[in-house]
């Protein structure tokens, strides 16, 4: 409230200057009206947030403690839904898969995003074109990306990717059918579609690196890899931190890629937390259990964010 008051002072002063009579009274009315006028401007967004975010969230928390059946009446079941989630074998499998997929995908996408940024940094027109082309997967709907990759991954010998690896004498791979390969196939698609997004953040970070540092390093005889390790990476630390948090939180909520590519199969080998929530909620009509699983996911995301912030703060303090 104080902030709003002080921020609006200059305008208040200038109007007061223009109109002479009853300065103090009008000034008071103005400043009184100010505190709620700020809320007025916030109101549309706030209302939308309350209606579409906070109320559903509260409802979700309530449903996670209930056996949900809107027409027969919900019944309170305490922590039963949570126990069901925590003891359910399929959720255990989903946790393992989510962690492997999340870690692999975040790591892969950040590294590749970084390499792409190094390659494509610069003001040249051609680079601008290549950057746009590289960025395309990010703006493509994930359902479309999934379908395209299903074609690329077509498991017969005349499938696109199988033909390519066939040139090197390799046997065809059943990318999405082989239970030991499917998760990595999904991971590759995730990396492919999210790396360019991180590239853009890194590009913004690279633009802010002091050129003279590179020149100084070059004069000192530093090679390319020394320059990257000693100049670029330290300068990009804030960007790397942001990108890693984003990647990790995104990876926890991965759904569409998996759903379109494999539907969680084969044999649950690509079943992740979100697909399990969907199955419980919409296929098995177990909305209480699905809500409990969603709340656990929320808690995990919040914890992860806190851990990440803690580490960033520590770094900054140093």
């Amino acid at each position: 409230m104080n902030q709003t008051g002080s921020a609006s002072k200059p305008t208040a002063a200038s109007t007061e200057g223009a109109h002479t009579p009853s300065v103090s009274r009008r000034g008071r009315i103005r400043s009184q009206s100010r505190w709620w006028s700020a809320w007025m401007f916030l109101a549309p967004a706030l209302l939308l947030f309350i209606y579409f975010k906070f109320i559903p969230m509260a409802q979700g928390i309530r449903m996670s403690f209930q056996d949900v059946s809107p027409f027969l009446g919900n019944t309170w079941v305490g922590f039963e839904n949570y126990i069901e989630v925590l003891t359910n074998e399929r959720f255990h499998q989903a946790v393992r898969n989510t962690i492997v997929l999340g870690a692999g995908q975040s790591f892969g996408a950040v590294i590749i995003g970084f390499l792409l940024a190094l390659l494509l940094e610069g003001p040249s027109r051609t680079l601008w074109f290549v950057r746009t082309a590289v960025f395309l997967p990010v703006v493509t709907a994930s359902a479309v990306v999934g379908e395209i990759w299903r074609i690329i991954y077509y498991p017969a010998a005349d499938g696109f990717l199988n033909k390519v690896i066939g040139l090197f004498g390799m046997d065809p791979i059943r990318y999405l059918e082989d239970t030991s390969v499917a998760l990595y196939a999904v991971m590759t698609v995730g990396i492919w579609s999210s790396a360019p997004y991180y590239m853009v953040i890194f590009l913004a970070g690279l633009a802010g690196v002091d050129r003279s540092l590179y020149e100084a390093a070059a004069i000192d005889g530093a090679r390319m890899r020394h320059r990257i390790i000693s100049v670029t990476i330290p300068a990009l630390r804030p960007a790397i931190m942001i990108v890693s948090i984003l990647a990790a939180v995104r990876a926890l909520r991965i759904f569409t890629d998996v759903w379109v590519l494999t539907g969680g199969g084969p044999a649950g080998s690509t079943q992740v937390w979100m697909t399990q929530i969907y199955t419980q909620g919409f296929e098995r009509n177990n909305l209480g259990v699905a809500s409990a699983a969603s709340i656990l996911l929320l808690i995990a995301s919040v914890l992860l964010t806190f851990v990440a912030i803690y580490f960033t703060r520590n770094k900054e303090a140093k």
């Binding site: 059918e177 082989d178 239970t179 199969g265 084969p266 044999a267 649950g268 199955t279 296929e283 098995r284 009509n285």
Partner: peptide
């Protein structure tokens, strides 16, 4: 029979893909 049907489909998918 929905839940049982899902269990059946998932079990056989597992069996025939592994």
């Amino acid at each position: 029979f929905t839940a049982a049907r899902l269990e059946i489909a998932e079990s056989f998918q597992t069996l025939f893909s592994q």
